[in-house]
């Protein structure tokens, strides 16, 4: 497993304090990684550092191949036509698949002579995505790609993206503050909270490694379990635990789902699920 993106010890300081503090994570090649966290967790800062828009105060970012970036508001030059926007892509990128870009926009029914500002939000998102994809990047970074899009446009953008991953094995890093958006599309999870990486790993492994337990409140947590979150109502206790074998039959055991897992970590900022240091960059 080679890493498409490796970040080690990344720190970025704001005027009011740390935006990112000692962040380390890696995303293996060919994965679709979700970067989730509450607003203000530092997601955009992390993405801007990965794409070179920000210079970090410390730490390193290593990317295998080119990085293409679609920023949150999907900026394009308003006064450019579609054709000029594609010329922009061709002139600024030595590796540029013009036939693909033109073909994809023709398929979507976006005429080359129209101006960017005449397009709908969904169409602009498609043009911005095409601009990023036609570069044939090794790593595609998307900041809240679904924000401000209607459900149809969201589905279209995700379909295009997943098709690209299936076709070319592009590694993708998507940020979102809505976990549900990324449910079916991502297979790698990075949880960022208060400028620190709290969780980083394969989603299936994470889900398999965490259990949701409920039972009478006199029960002790299973031996060796890391309790991520604990909540008590009446005589019942509910635990989200990591890395435990549950032998006591009084526990009602089920697998946690992705939303529960993310929420539990976000509510317990001191907990973390990170690969051992030796695995970072593996």
């Amino acid at each position: 497993m080679t890493a498409a993106l490796t970040v080690t010890g990344l720190s970025v300081r704001h005027r009011r304090g740390w935006a990112l503090r000692d962040c380390s994570l890696s995303v293996p090649a060919g994965r679709v990684a979700a970067l989730v966290g509450p607003n203000g967790a530092g997601k955009t800062t992390l993405l801007h550092t990965v794409t070179g828009l920000l210079t970090p105060h410390g730490g390193t970012v290593t990317v295998a191949g080119d990085v293409a970036f679609m920023a949150q508001d999907k900026p394009l030059y308003d006064t450019f036509t579609i054709a000029e926007t594609l010329t922009f892509g061709r002139r600024l990128n030595p590796r540029w698949d013009g036939a693909y870009a033109a073909g994809r926009l023709a398929e979507l029914g976006i005429e080359p002579e129209r101006k960017i500002k005449e397009l709908s939000g969904g169409q602009q998102a498609q043009v911005a995505l095409t601009l990023a994809l036609a570069r044939r990047p090794g790593l595609l970074v998307l900041d809240e790609p679904l924000a401000n899009l209607d459900p149809l446009a969201r589905h279209d953008v995700m379909r295009a993206l997943m098709g690209e991953v299936a076709e070319r094995g592009t590694t993708v890093l998507i940020s979102s503050h809505v976990v549900a958006d990324l449910h079916d599309t991502c297979d790698w999870l990075v949880v960022l909270n208060g400028g620190r990486v709290q969780v980083s790993g394969d989603i299936d492994d994470l889900l398999a490694g965490h259990l949701m337990l409920s039972g009478p409140d006199e029960l002790r947590p299973p031996a060796g379990a890391q309790v991520i979150e604990e909540s008590r109502t009446g005589r019942q206790v509910r635990l989200l635990v990591r890395g435990a074998q549950v032998l006591d039959p009084r526990w009602n055991v089920r697998q946690a789902d992705l939303d529960e897992l993310v929420l539990a970590y976000l509510r317990s900022p001191e907990a973390s699920a990170l690969p051992r240091l030796s695995e970072v960059g593996a």
């Binding site: 995700m158 379909r159 997943m162 098709g163 991953v165 299936a166 076709e167 079916d184 297979d187």
Partner: peptide
């Protein structure tokens, strides 16, 4: 259907297919 066909219809991760 190929992974790409499924993925482009359902917008899901190809690895899932």
């Amino acid at each position: 259907p190929t992974a790409r066909e499924v993925v482009e219809a359902l917008a899901i991760n190809p690895n899932t297919v």
